[in-house]
């Protein structure tokens, strides 16, 4: 075990533990704060993958902006345990089915990855740790604007339309 692996296990435990706490904590504000912890742990993983740009963008966008908005809304709603709606029995069943399906997908994905790993040389690992530089800003920029320029632009148009929609909804009140 070297330092990178130790860090990987610590960060993974932190991520999973915090993710569980998001679900288990009664207070929604605490859930949001645990979710921020999850983002931090995942950002740590990005650093281990030598993807510094993704690390900081994850922090800026998710922890710095989106979670602030979440917190904002939850603080204003002042949710308490007694205002929590009663859960429907059917809803619970639907949840179990959906969760089971997700698990199936995960298992299939892991199997696929395992097969790929076996097919490729054993030296090529599933995850490259501390090496590879696809996450560095220069390579990422080149990849985005050469290979993936069409999806990138389409998604930006999508964001633009969402923004225009938000403005239209906001204007309706006047």
């Amino acid at each position: 075990m070297n330092v990178t692996e130790i860090l990987f296990w610590i960060l993974s435990a932190l991520a999973i533990g915090s993710a569980l706490m998001v679900l288990l904590s009664k207070n929604p504000v605490h859930s949001v704060l645990w979710l921020i912890m999850v983002f931090f742990a995942i950002s740590g993983h990005y650093i281990l993958l030598n993807a510094q740009f993704l690390f900081i963008v994850n922090l800026i966008v998710y922890a710095g902006a989106i979670m602030v908005l979440f917190l904002f809304v939850i603080m204003l709603m002042n949710l308490n345990t007694d205002t929590e709606p009663q859960k429907n029995k059917w809803l619970r069943l639907a949840g179990v089915v959906a969760g089971g399906c997700l698990m199936l997908v995960f298992v299939a994905a892991f199997r696929e990855a395992e097969i790929q790993r076996q097919q490729a040389n054993a030296a090529v690992r599933l995850v490259q740790m501390g090496e590879g530089n696809i996450g560095l800003i220069e390579n990422l920029g080149k990849a985005l604007f050469h290979e993936y320029v069409l999806p990138f632009e389409i998604s930006s148009v999508l964001f633009l339309s969402a923004m225009v929609g938000a403005v239209v909804i906001g204007k309706k009140g006047d």
Partner: peptide
């Protein structure tokens, strides 16, 4: 190599 973004991220936190 992302120094300025790091500052920006910490400020946003």
């Amino acid at each position: 190599n992302i120094g300025i973004l790091f500052i920006f991220g910490v400020v946003s936190l």
